[in-house]
Design a protein around this nucleic acid. Structure first.
Lengths: 188, 188
DNA sequence: GCAATTGATTGCAGTCTCTGTAATCACCTA
DNA sequence: TAGGTGATTACAGAGACTGCAATCAATTGC
């Protein structure tokens, strides 16, 4: 390899974020993005399955790492705790990227199709976590329900994190959210 | 109104299901559907926002009715119970359409973009239920978490209902699923 | 009756997303 | 130095979706 400048994928991602912020997602064509990145439209689709995907890099690795962490959790840890612990491992990565995350969130919030894709990513996460819990020996239905609730709590936590005027770290919001889940579940 | 034969929307839905089953979703164009329904392509988009939507009719009403049922639930009923009760009101409608539901599910399972749209519908349901719970006076975070868990249980229940070789009614699977949720939550 | 309005449908042109296929060509390897 | 590799490019085309204007039966108001 090496004939071309490296980092095409990153350049496309950066150009996309930039243009989406400037002119909006729907008024930015894939051609605009590739032009800004010094590439051709066809190349974009070599790197991303569709236009939306450029906003969801590293998702696959993120999910795989979380599932792995759950699988590696101590056997005496409860299923929900093992997920919470896995999520807590990722917080510093996110806290270091708080501004970029907010910018991305602003873009996502402008278009239903982007929120839709985000839901699909959350569903993939949920699925992977449920699978990991099952490997730890939980009943299938219980694993799925725990994963669903945990992802729900995770969604709430990240939303609160991004909206927090005090900019408290993600860790704080995750703890609040999971604690809220336990408290809430007591009334079920 | 009345210049044209009535029921265009239903004809489009039926034609779509038929063609999707026969030749697959991706090998069926909107033009195919409208031709089968005796209409033009442009008319399809007067009725449905996009090609996927033809597989999700009545969704808006379904969500509205459930939210309304939750709002109207007795004040002494727990949030989770109020959702479960609302869902139980809909079971006979679904049981009467078991075959159609299976057929539709088979189509949805063939394409990621269709499952993605389904997730968006579930998210809308979740949102509406959380809103209804909040109106009943629950704390925001608690309402959201309960709605998330309930929709998770609902998804499991419908999946089990459609996969059940014994064809037990949806009511049965809903009860199992919500009972499983309560049991599972005890280990959180 | 009759004119005006309504609203579902149509026609058409055009943009953009996404795909299939084959070609290019610097770099790496044997 | 011949051949392989892999990212990129070129090109053509299908199909989803939109905007806008036109049609015309049924309905409504007078």
């Amino acid at each position: 390899m090496g004939r071309w400048p490296t980092g095409s994928q990153e350049r496309l991602q950066d150009a996309a974020i930039e243009l989406f912020s400037e002119r909006g997602y729907e008024h930015t064509t894939v051609a605009h993005i590739t032009e800004a990145a010094g590439l051709t439209e066809r190349t974009f689709y070599n790197h991303f399955a569709d236009k939306r995907e450029v906003l969801f890099p590293d998702q696959k690795r993120f999910v795989a790492e979380l599932a792995e962490a759950v699988r590696a959790a101590p056997a005496d840890q409860s299923p929900l705790d093992s997920i919470a612990a896995a999520l807590l491992l990722t917080t510093s990565w996110f806290d270091q990227r708080h501004d970029a995350a907010r910018r991305r969130r602003t873009i996502l919030d402008t278009r239903a199709e982007l929120r839709e894709r985000e839901l699909a990513k959350m569903a993939a996460l949920e699925e992977a976590l449920a699978g990991a819990l099952r490997e730890r020996g939980g009943a299938g239905i219980s694993a799925a329900l725990t994963a669903a609730a945990a992802v729900g709590a995770y969604r709430l936590a990240t939303a609160a994190w991004l909206a927090d005027p005090q900019r408290r770290p993600l860790e704080h919001h995750l703890k609040v959210s999971f604690e809220g889940l336990r408290t809430t579940a007591m009334n079920w």
